[in-house]
Amino acid sequence: MEQLILALGWAGLYGPMALGAIGSIIGCAIAGQAAIGALLETESGHGRFIGLSAMPSSQSIYGIVVMFTLQRPVTLATSAGLFSVGILAGVALLLSAVYQGNCCASAINSAKSKPEIFGLSIAPAAIVEGFGVFAFIFALVIAGNIPAQ
């Protein structure tokens, strides 16, 4: 039982990084494919499509920062806190990256034939990013309450 609790503690420690990265992989792949498709149909503005498709990569960075904030000895006293905060923050980052990728793909698909809406079409992706930032910030705040040893 003790081993299981410690394993969960380690999972919580690495969780935000791993889950955030998984989300970024999926999100960037979806948006990236949309950007590649749009390149075939547009004469200019290619850079901004590729740039937009990289938007879901920020969740990986948030995950790394949360992981370092949570980093402390994994003991019976710290495992429960590490698991709860780490995994929940990781799931939130994963979902925000995937859905942000969807928003970016839709934005690219719409903006390719109507470039003037490009700025506005990014708004939903930015809103999704905002919720990812909430999860990130409050994971940092709550991590301060997990025992150091």
Binding site: I36, L40, E41, S113
Partner: peptide
């Protein structure tokens, strides 16, 4: 890639009707 996004590149490469 999920079925939902299977043809994201194809559809993005088609001009709007």
């Amino acid at each position: 890639m999920s079925k939902r996004h299977q043809y994201v590149d194809l559809l993005a490469s088609l001009p709007a009707l």
